[in-house]
Design a protein around this nucleic acid. Structure first.
Length: 958
RNA sequence: GCCCGAGUGGCGGAAUGGCAGACGCGACGGACUCAAAAUCCGUUGUCCGAAAGGGCGUGUGGGUUCGAGUCCCACCUCGGGCACCA
């Protein structure tokens, strides 16, 4: 498309007209002044930033720690090589407008912006350009800072952080050590220092779970026991191996179709030794504490869903290979369990497999391992599987039931083994049909169920169309001790079964989670090194604080080793492994063992590490003694009253981090809270998801995207270089070739227009399509404000009208009341509409009285701060508008002497009457019935009913 | 399949159960101009009508109510999330 923005509007006669170039000049000037004066510097109650901000002049009224505080936060960006497009800053502008508004209503507002500069995007960009990531990252951060500054965002620049800065990741490493040196006490439901565990073990008050004697264990054996408790630990577990990226990734980074969310490469489940974080210990609290948060229900639902809490039972089935433990949510169906299914990777499979089945089992296992998760899900109607040749014993009836392996049972969920109840579970039902296994009925389904399926009521499951799941009388479900027959309630039957399981020692009720421990190591270069070394016995030691940070060693060999994306059997290699001199060190860890040889951990932390706590570092960015000062954290994030968990007052970002960043950050925060380092239980008290800016994208006949800038429209048809193209809408970005750079808008209209346009497009939480040709509307609005206040020939202020007329004054107060309420509720689009209405009224007046000019400028300040500051200064004020009080409406001016009320007959408006605003309902009734139009509409019929909604309207029913 | 959202003019959108379409874009007409741009003024849901005026209108079908875009039920469509989770 060819927007009209190609020519900069200029006007020779009107030297002081508000044009793009004047806006540009004003904006740069005010940005410099704000920076020089430290206008947005926010004081802390203690520590290095406690000093009051620079004075901006004698009239400066600055923020104070005695004011109510407000911590406004954006999800910080990762600085990509392509810079910002106009879709990125939508949320940043929203928080800026709100933060500026709150400053004007007396809050001490903290608003800062940092950079998530470690991780794959930065590293991949570096690999592409062949430059070291430290160099490209620094350059990209500088570009972002410049682009964000140009938007006029009121950030405290002193508080900016970058996660790849050693002074930052020193504390990321310190927090890792806190987690490593902690364990979860399930009885107290909180993390405690590992030293307290060791003390309990030493004292013998905490016996070992395997019954062995702590006192008789060797140093290495003790270390193994302790490592089994740590919240950060190394374990051999099934992980997501991505050969295409050359690294393992977390479950949360795998898409629904079994590919990496970065790069879209296939993911293979492989068992590997990796660093894990025991986030599962917090599963309950991560669910329960959602109640305390002001988040949308959909995000809460996504987190609950991801954690996937389900109540059920563990049941042990005897087998030749020893007990096989299963998890089931339906212990009440135990009598219907006629076979078992193990995941192909289940450790007992090898011992269970009989010699005659070995070849088939091994072949099936091999095939399953080579499949990606997506391939395992391709066809969910045809079940595959292999009999192991062994039988297990069903504890309720001592029946011998065959043990199979099948890939519909996942090693990563429950125990990796199930009891199959084909009459009551659709998957088991299909499997039994597929392999001709017996399907006894254990419930008598109701007649309606058969009717819906078009089958005759019968207990012969061969006639059933599907498995039955629901409340129905149990049959064939009793033994000498457990009587389920004749029960009809699932909950009751579950309860009875659970009691029996405990009484007989066959199992117990339990809660299972979908959530898995967090895979925390990556075979990459551009990330935080672990503050961990291994001794000659392979025991892991965290480095003492004095040895932090462990700096990422400079090397030209930063490229990760990647593989054929489909090569499941390749093995990860860490770039840091190649740095022999760095890997091997001699250290005195201060543990009394003197200087010894150690080997460094060569994995790095995942991208998410730095973003797990960055909001805390904004609070106290220069503190060299702690990650954040206690008093400072309590001031900005402490709980505010009973039941308040504390946390950031407003956190704005995209919905895409619903389960990744937001879950990890909550977990870290809770650990730090448990260990006494924080006063807040949750990091983000209020979460707001802004929408996305969508933009038209165009595809040619080959289905290839073409540059949206070069597409032309003619009578609703689109073409590119003379060829027809088709339009679709998508997230703005490089891949759809539809990105619009903010510079394109600054150059033509200025940053204030861009800010206003993005805020006026619609509600902040809604996605909306970008239309460059619409931007001019907000430019015209600013231009009209300017013209109403400024003489375009001389540039002088022209608030000519002497006094306010009554209607204008009433409109002003209505506007003040409305804009204030809209701003508070972040309804910036309607706030802008109200300001436009007021300004359009002023345009009609042909001038602007002084009082009204000041009110307009102050109300405009959060939205278009540069123009507002400029006009404020032209009106003769010397101090910044930043801390000027936002106007408050006079309630008396909101009540009109007379009001116009519509009169409806049967819900249709037939007339309007002007009545005194305090007129009684009776008076209103008489006036309504006296209207000619009403009399005509009634046509002589007597009204059945007459409703007066006081101050609103009249409805006459005939 | 399950769980969240959302459907309003040509477009983005506005409406504590009380005048549907605020505000903006676009379009049309006018003023200014030699002309154009910019600016200013006016019109703009739709149908019938010269007008006055009237009919119909918030995805579809029901319901509650004096009154429904808004609340309830069923359905359709679109967007997002989850999904062989035992």
């Amino acid at each position: 498309m060819n927007p009209s923005t190609d020519e900069t509007p200029t006007d020779d006669q009107h030297t002081f007209r508000y044009t793009g170039s004047l806006a540009h000049e004003i904006e740069l000037r005010w940005q410099d002044r704000w920076d020089a004066a430290g206008t947005f510097d926010t004081p802390n109650p203690a520590g290095p930033l406690a000093a009051p901000p620079n004075s901006a002049g004698p009239n400066r009224v600055g923020p104070s720690v005695d004011s109510p505080k407000l911590f406004v936060l954006d999800m910080f960006p990762y600085p990509s090589g392509t810079g910002l497009h106009v879709g990125h800053p939508l949320g940043f502008i929203g928080t800026d407008v709100w933060g500026r508004f709150k400053r004007m209503t007396g809050f001490n507002v903290l608003h800062a912006m940092g950079f998530d500069s470690f991780g794959l995007p930065a590293e991949q960009y570096a690999v592409q350009t062949g430059q070291h990531p430290a160099i490209t990252t620094a350059a990209n951060v500088a570009t972002y800072r410049q682009q964000l500054r140009r938007l006029g965002l009121a950030h405290d620049r002193r508080r900016s952080v970058a996660t790849s800065d050693p002074s930052y990741y020193r504390w990321t490493q310190w927090i890792f050590n806190q987690i490593f040196e902690a364990w979860y006490d399930a009885d107290q439901r909180r993390a405690r220092p590992i030293a307290e565990l060791i003390a309990e073990l030493d004292a013998g008050t905490r016996p070992l779970t395997d019954g062995s004697d702590w006192a008789s264990l060797s140093r290495v054996e003790r270390a193994e026991v302790i490592d089994g408790y740590r919240l950060a630990y190394i374990a051999e577990t099934p992980v997501n191996w991505c050969p295409g990226l050359g690294t393992v990734v977390a479950n949360e980074e795998v898409t629904a179709d079994g590919r990496s969310d970065r790069g879209n490469f296939p993911i293979f489940k492989r068992s590997m030794r990796q660093w894990m974080m025991r986030i599962t210990a917090y599963a309950d609290r991560l669910i329960d504490d959602l109640e305390l948060l002001d988040w949308t229900d959909s995000i809460k639902a996504m987190q609950r869903n991801w954690i996937g809490r389900s109540e059920g039972a563990r049941v042990r089935f005897a087998s030749p290979a020893g007990p096989i433990e299963v998890f089931t949510t339906r212990p009440d169906t135990l009598f219907g369990a006629t076979f078992m299914v193990l995941a192909p990777e289940h450790p007992l499979v090898a011992t269970l497999t009989s010699p005659d089945q070995r070849a088939a089992v091994t072949a099936y296992q091999r095939a399953a391992q080579a499949k990606t998760d997506v391939a395992r899900q391709v066809d969910d109607t045809t079940k595959t599987g292999v009999f192991t040749g062994s039988y297990a014993i069903n504890p309720v009836n001592d029946a011998e039931i065959p043990v199979w392996i099948a890939d519909y049972v996942l090693m990563g969920y429950g125990t990796g083994a199930i009891m199959a109840v084909p009459c009551g579970d659709q998957r088991d039902f299909e499997f039994a049909r597929q392999f001709g296994l017996t399907v006894p009925a254990i419930q008598q389904p109701p007649a309606e169920w058969f009717a819906t399926n078009g089958t005759e009521p019968s207990l012969d499951t061969a006639t059933w169309a599907m498995a039955y799941v629901g409340n129905a009388p149990y049959v064939n479900s009793s033994n000498g001790e457990l009587q389920l027959d004749a029960m009809t309630d699932i909950a009751q039957a579950k309860h009875a079964t659970n009691d029996w399981l405990v009484a007989t020692g066959h199992g117990h009720a339990t809660i299972n989670y979908k959530l898995r421990d967090w895979l925390f190591s990556r075979q990459r270069y551009w990330g935080e090194p672990f503050p961990i070394v291994f001794d000659d016995d392979g025991v892991a030691h965290s480095l003492p604080d004095a040895m932090l940070p462990v700096e990422l060693p400079p090397t030209e060999g930063f490229s990760p080793r990647t593989f054929d994306p489909d090569d499941a059997m390749s093995d990860p290699e860490s770039p840091l492994d190649r740095l022999e001199d760095w890997v091997h060190v001699e250290l005195d860890l201060g543990d009394g063992r003197g200087v010894r040889r150690y080997r460094r951990e060569t994995n790095v932390m995942p991208q998410w590490a730095g973003s797990c706590w960055y909001e805390l570092r904004y609070l106290d960015p220069t503190n060299e003694h702690r990650f954040v000062d206690r008093a400072v954290e309590e001031y900005w994030m402490g709980p505010q009253g009973e039941g308040h968990p504390g946390g950031v007052d407003l956190y704005v970002g995209g919905v895409e981090h619903a389960v990744l960043h937001l879950l990890y950050a909550r977990f870290w925060h809770k650990v730090l809270f448990d260990l006494g380092h924080l006063s807040s239980k949750e990091p983000y008290h209020r979460l707001f998801n802004q929408g996305y800016i969508l933009a038209a994208a165009f595809k040619d006949e080959r289905e290839i995207y073409v540059d949206a800038h070069a597409v032309t429209e003619h009578d609703g048809a689109f073409s590119f270089e003379g060829n027809p193209v088709t339009r679709e809408w998508g997230k703005m970005g490089k891949s759809l070739k539809n990105a619009v750079a903010p510079d394109e808008i600054y150059d033509v209209y200025g940053a204030d227009t861009l800010r206003l346009y993005e805020m006026a497009m619609g509600p902040l939480d809604a996605s909306r399509p970008w239309e460059t040709r619409d931007v001019v509307g907000m430019y015209r609005f600013l231009q009209r404000i300017w013209r109403n206040l400024i003489d375009e020939q001389t540039g002088a202020i022209r608030t000519v009208l002497p006094a306010l007329d009554d209607p204008t004054e009433r409109l002003l107060h209505r506007t003040v009341a409305g804009v204030r309420a809209d701003m508070e509720a972040m309804r910036f689009n309607t706030a802008i509409a109200k300001l436009i209405e007021l300004n359009n009224h002023l345009t009609k007046l042909g001038g602007c009285p002084r009082d009204i000019a000041e009110h307009v400028v102050v109300m405009l300040a959060p939205l278009a701060p540069h123009m507002a500051e400029e006009l404020w200064s032209l009106l003769g004020h010397t101090a910044t508008l930043t801390y000027t009080d936002f106007p408050v409406a006079d309630p008396a001016m909101l009540i009109d002497a007379t009001i116009e009320m519509p009169v409806q007959v049967n819900g249709k408006v037939r007339a309007r009457i002007i009545v005194a605003s305090d007129a009684s309902d009776d008076v209103v009734k008489q006036m309504a019935l006296a209207e000619d139009k009403v009399i005509a509409a009634l046509a002589g019929t007597k009204p059945k009913k007459l409703i007066v909604v006081t101050g609103r309207m009249v409805n006459i029913v005939v």
